[in-house]
Every structure is written in structure tokens, then in C-alpha cells.
Design a protein around this nucleic acid. Sequence first.
DNA 1: TTGTAAGCGTTATCAC
DNA 2: GTGATAACGCTTACAA
Lengths: 340, 340
Amino acid sequence: MERLNIDKVAKLAHVSRSVVSRVLNNHPNVSDEARVRVMKVVKKYNYRPNAVARSLATQSTYQIGVLTSRIEDESLGNGYWTLLYLGIFEECIRRGYYVRLSFYSSSMSDELHEHLLNPHQLDGVICLNEEVTDLTVETLADKDIPIVLVGHNPKHPDISSVDVDNYDGAYTATKHLIDLGHKQIGGIFGDQNVEETEHRIRAYREALKDHGLDVRDDYISVGSYTQQDGYNTLNVWTEDHKQMTAVFCASDTIAMGGMLALHEKGVSVPGQFSVVGFDGLPISRYMIPPLTTIEQPTYGKGERAAQLLIDKIKNIDEKVIQENLKPKLVIRKSSGPAPA
Amino acid sequence: MERLNIDKVAKLAHVSRSVVSRVLNNHPNVSDEARVRVMKVVKKYNYRPNAVARSLATQSTYQIGVLTSRIEDESLGNGYWTLLYLGIFEECIRRGYYVRLSFYSSSMSDELHEHLLNPHQLDGVICLNEEVTDLTVETLADKDIPIVLVGHNPKHPDISSVDVDNYDGAYTATKHLIDLGHKQIGGIFGDQNVEETEHRIRAYREALKDHGLDVRDDYISVGSYTQQDGYNTLNVWTEDHKQMTAVFCASDTIAMGGMLALHEKGVSVPGQFSVVGFDGLPISRYMIPPLTTIEQPTYGKGERAAQLLIDKIKNIDEKVIQENLKPKLVIRKSSGPAPA
DNA sequence: TTGTAAGCGTTATCAC
DNA sequence: GTGATAACGCTTACAA
């Protein structure tokens, strides 16, 4: 089966290459007769236009890049990224775009990083986290390639972004514990210096304050979104803060590590200690005990980011949109009434 | 900053476009003098050749496709895919290839599926699972695009593939339980009709037989690689098979679900019942109790698959290679001596 | 409605 | 060692 090109199709259909092109791109001004002849040939030989050549001619590749940073295995392994990417991917495919997923690591040369973001090949870029945003914005400066962020970034007020409502989620989680009668509630948070973390911490504090509870700085830990971090933190706290009866974890992974520490110390969950997570990862349902958590629309975040990006690429929407998706409290078995 | 092209660079460096092209592609037959002049301009204006145009001219895109099937959220969420993809990605980047990750779902039209595999844009394809292999091979027939599989497929003996040594892993896992004194050992397996599953089941049976233990068909379950499956199976078995004291799970996710069922029934692990998983997912370390498992080189599988593919693309290696990577038993807390 | 021809930015062939 | 020139396969004015 020899490879066809537009000229051969044109010849077989007894028309010029322009007619073929018009048919394939659904342009008007093509007689029905010609259209039928062309489509017949296309079908018969299963002809598919060469996307590379098309890209060269149109200066657009219908390909978008997704960039995230390559963090430790443990964080990669939690399933969050897969779901987020899936949302992006499926929205893109629906609208005719391909997706290229790249991991950036700080050990990577600038050269390589620019290579990943080669603007000749990308119609737009989605940045999945803070670490990668600045680099990308800088690399793509003056190249007018649309960018959309997952997670708002106050440093870039001119870029559209999607996020879960972090304040709402953290407030709800904390309030859930307060409602259960807990008075000494810790908070374990992830990435430092990120708006997301700020909002979650603020919500945690304000929930406590709004309900007349003390806010203690030594009940707050900011580390990383890993099981290891939750594990270490609760290992220490179970020794140092005997009064504490509950903890809000800013990710399900933190909660998972925390519950292991509790288990090893013989502290029963939720009997003696309650744990609430954040993310609603698929695995959270199968933790021991199943985790009460703030479920965020991870897939939906990806989907919406892709929508915003493609709209921008197609100039459907010019304005900057920074959107918050609502999270939802899912009560399972890791949270219960404060011990008497 | 206006966009440069090769002609403008040529003009600025006072050479012809051919010289620029040669310099950029490290061809011989360029005077040092010319090379220096060109590189100066390239550096100064930060010129990067248009990869799309290059692809059109060379008929190769330096882009490879990775295809996997879109399975239930729960399976996606376990971190296996991310690690596998990361291995592929990093090897590709090292060797100058881009990677496009696509999820195939059976609800997808053939049209769309072919779109994803558009041979004009892909120098090669890696298939991450059985479901997707046949489709891909068929779609790419006669297009002579190299394919590499993760997971051997006896239906395609002419395609190179990488896998973990499933027999070895399952045998080791089962033997570990036997060595601990267990006599009634169940086996919960994943995908049906896959070589991987066959080998794991065979290893499980032979380990039992080799050590003089009975092999019972009702101690074997073949379902899917999900927590749900492990949960359901052990829920039933704890009722129906009171003698059983251990189970080998063909994935860490199955084990995770199984341990939850055990927990809910009040069966202590490893006191009354031992569990061994397979995969060595990052999360397995934080399960309650931390899971004894067969750690497979997930990242390494991806890396090796990419190596094989790129070698094939570059015609470095013509022959079919079907490789097995060695798994490793990691003993943690979910397995212990058989109860007396 | 259709066809011609220029252009997209490279690489590769072949004289010089 | 260098520089025209012809591909590569498509889109898109513009002319017919």
C-alpha cells in the first residue's frame, strides 16, 4: 500500500489539489459532485492528510504541551497526576488536539527545558504546578503562546488558571472536625510558598477561630505532599502534643502516612484520633480506615484547564479567567467524635 | 523579537542556508570559520530551527506515541502508570525524542483511534497493555512504524517487548508464604487471558506443588487489578475458606483492597492472615500494615521499552528482543508465620 | 466553483 | 567547503 499525498488523491478524483484541501477542511465553495468524488477516493484508499505538512502551512500543530515537575516517586505514585492528565487529555482529544506530557526536573539543562517547550510544535501549554510556571512563562515570553495554569499563581495575574477552592475545602474539613467535638486539631500542609497552601492554612486557622478555638503555631506543619511527611509529623506530634485528637491533612497522601504512624503507636483511628485528608484520591477509599477527605474534582480541573487553553488558542475568549471548582466533603471512617 | 528562520540566520552570518543547516546538524564539510559565524548568530538571536519544517523534510518527527487503555479510575490512581511513563519519558528525552501519551477507550471511534496513532506524526509507538496492542498493530499495519510492547504478547512474536519476569515474581511470593509455614494459600489475579496472568498463576501453582501443598481451584480468583476486586474476593473467602491463612495478590492494589476486607472482618494481618502483593508501588510502603510485595522495576520497564523502540527506529538493532526484568521480594509487615 | 502558484522552514542532492 | 535548487505535503490567496 503506497503512501498517498494530496496530489495523488486529486488526480484520482479528477480535481485539483485545492479542491481536495477544501473538502478535507470543510470549506464552502465546493460542488457536491466534486466533494463526493474526493470522498470516495479518500475512503477507498484510506487517505489521511499529513499533519506535519499541514502544521507547516498553517503554523499550528494542534498539539498542546503539559508540563509538570518531576517530583519524588512517592508523590508521583499517588494517582493525582494521572487523573488530572486524563481530564486534560480527553478534553483535548474531543476538540482535536494532541497532548504531550513532559516532566521537568531541576537537574535538566536549560537547553533541554526549552526543547520540551519548543514553540514551533506547541499551540499552547498547561502548567501543572508552581515550580514549572515561572520557567515556562519566561521561556515562552514574546512567543505569544497561550498558557493556562492548574493552580492560581498571584505572580501571573494575566494568565488564566483553574483550581479547587482551597479555602472552602480546608474550612469544611476543619469544621467537620470541630463539629465532631475536637478542640485540639493539628494541620499538616504541603508545598511552601504557594497560594494553595496559604489559603488552606488561612481557612484552617479561621475555622478554628470562628468556633472559639485556640490557634497554635506548633500545631501547624508545612512540609511536602508525601506520605513520608505525614508519617514523620504524626510520629513527633503523638509524643509532643498528647492533647491533640485530630488532624487535618492537606493531602490524602499525608493522611496515609499519618495514619501509619498512628497505627504503629497504637493510637486507634477514629477512636482516639480523627484524620481528614484532601484530594479524594481513588486510593483514599481503601485506606485503613477508609479516609474522610475533601474530594476535589481532579479530572474536572484538567478538563477545565484544557477548555480554557483551547478557547484561548482559538481566540474564543480573550479575557483572563481564574476559576475555582468546588470541593466536597466525603465522610468515611477516619473521623469520629472526639474522645471523652 | 521577530521570528528568525534559516534564511535570515544565513544572511546574518553571511553564508548560505545550507551551511547553517550543516552546522546545526553537525555535518562535516563546514569550515571552522563559517561554523563560528553561524553559531554566533544562533546564540545571539537564540535561534531554534523549526522542528515541524524539519520533520517534513526528514520524514521523521522525533516523536513517539505511548498508548494505553483508559481503565477505571481506581486502576489509574495507583501510580503504576505514572512511573512507567516516567521511565519512557526520561529515556526518550535523553535521546532527543518527544513523547505523546494517549489513553484509548473502547467507546472511542475508530476514526479517533487512528487519529491518535497518526503515523505522519509518530516515529514509533509503545503499547502499555494488551487491550491496546492488537488495535495498534492493526492500525499501523503496512506503515512500517516500529512498535514495542510493555508486557509480552504471544500473538505478536515479531514485536519486541519488555516485561517483568512474572513467573519468577509469583513463584517467589508464593514460596515466601510457604516458607513462613502457610499451607492454605489463596491467589488473587488480575486481567484474564493475558500471558502475564497465566505465568503468575502457573508459578503460584507450581510453587505449591513443588512444596507438597494442595492446589485448589477454589483458592484461585481471576478478576481485575483493582482494590475493589481484592476487597470483594477476601470478603467472600474469609467466610468460605476459614482454613486459609495467606493470600498472594497479583497487584498491590488487590492487596490493599484485600487488607481492608480483612480489617473490617477483624482478621489481623499478619497475626492471623498474611498478604503478599505484587508491583512494589510507592504506596505499598504506607499501607497498614506495610505490604510485603514483589517489587518490579516499573520505571525500568518503561526505560527499557523506550530504548528498544528508539534502537529500532534508528535501525541500530533489527532483531526481535523479548526481555524479562527481574523482580525482587520486599519483606515488610503484612506477612508473618502461619498461625498455630 | 475550480485551478494555479506561492509559501511554510527545513534537508539533501549536486554542481561548482 | 559552499551554494543553488529541488523536494517534503499541505493551505490559501488570487485568477480564471
